[in-house]
């Protein structure tokens, strides 16, 4: 029964991550998007903490804490303020309609399931499912970066992609703590850098729509 519970909870949390990813790719309003992202980060923290207790790996608690503090609190709050100060909270933009995006996302999840279950036939079933979920989250994050025009939503897509990576990393046993900490810090630094850039772009072009950058480079769409 113990093993069954382990499996079920991990499965539930992993599935939750993918579900929130779907929420994010169809979320057109920026604040709602940020809330969904924070929810995903909380789920990630929970899932990592569960892995810590299951694997008896106390250092994973630190990873969970990092995920909770940075991704569920600092980054969403920071982005929230940026949106406020830029005054873009009403902006809505997607390149592709939400139905199409949804279908594409489902296709990607199916693809990652197929690939992962096919290439890891001998692995631990829990790790297999986890990897499949993680790959889905990564692909959905990429999909979001591709389908959005607003720089803030692209940043959120990138962060969500990184959530998937952390999830994959904690599912695998014996990943060293230093790797996770450095990944967390790199995300934080990327957040700062991107935040600064957002303001610079805004100052120069009066918009954070990346199409403006393309126009500035003299390109046709």
């Amino acid at each position: 029964m113990g093993h069954g519970l382990t499996f079920d909870v991990a499965h539930l949390l992993g599935g939750g991550l993918v579900l929130v990813s779907f929420l994010m790719i169809t979320q057109h309003r920026l604040y709602a998007l940020l809330n969904a992202f924070a929810l995903q980060a909380v789920l990630l923290a929970l899932s990592v903490a569960w892995q810590a207790s299951v694997q008896h790996a106390p250092h994973l608690y630190i990873t969970a804490l990092i995920a909770l503090v940075f991704k569920a609190i600092i980054v969403p709050v920071g982005l929230h303020r940026i949106i406020q100060r830029l005054g873009i909270h009403r902006e809505i933009e997607t390149v592709i309609g939400s139905g199409t995006t949804m279908l594409a996302g489902m296709g990607l999840v199916a693809l990652s399931m197929t690939v992962m279950l096919k290439v890891t036939p001998t692995a631990d079933p829990l790790a297999r499912e986890d990897l499949a979920f993680a790959l889905s989250v990564v692909l959905l994050g990429l999909l979001m970066m591709v389908t959005r025009r607003n720089a803030v939503s692209q940043v959120v897509g990138f962060m969500s992609l990184e959530n998937g990576l952390v999830f994959a990393g904690t599912g695998a046993r014996g990943m060293p703590l230093v790797v996770e900490i450095s990944v967390a810090f790199s995300v934080l630094i990327a957040f700062f850098v991107i935040g600064v850039f957002l303001f610079r772009i805004r100052e120069r072009f009066d918009t954070v729509d990346i199409e403006a950058l393309d126009r500035f480079r003299g390109e046709r769409r």
Binding site: V95, M145, V146, D214
Partner: peptide, 19 residues
């Protein structure tokens, strides 16, 4: 001389087709 989004899409498509 592609746009940023086109590069991202290229990377994405390459990844998906490899998968």
């Amino acid at each position: 001389f592609l746009t940023i989004r086109s590069y991202l899409s290229l990377v994405f498509l390459a990844l998906v087709s490899l998968l």
